[in-house]
Amino acid sequence: MVPLSWYLIFSAALFSIGLFGALSRRNLVAILLGIELMLNSVNVNLVAFWRYGDVTNITGQVFTIIVFAVAAAEVAVGLALVISVYRKRNTVIADEIDMLKF
């Protein structure tokens, strides 16, 4: 049986990688990719705790589904903003989008 701590370490590593991506990438789409990784690591944690806790208590899985919905909404709006910014400014580099309004 795989110990619970392995899943937690795995998801911590995934979260850190995502955090690095979100903080360090220049491209807006790449930043969103990093955020996706972070959301996934949260899901791994939720499901692992569901499995290793009381399995009849389905809360972990319900929250995972809610996270799916949140991730979908985040990606939809985030990428729409990126496309809109690209159309107006012709760039998707985060550093170059430094005006407060357009």
Binding site: P3, L4, S5, L8, R51, Y52, V55
Partner: peptide, 8 residues
């Protein structure tokens, strides 16, 4: 301390 939990 909870990490030693085993899956039921």
């Amino acid at each position: 301390s909870g990490v030693t939990k085993t899956a039921s």
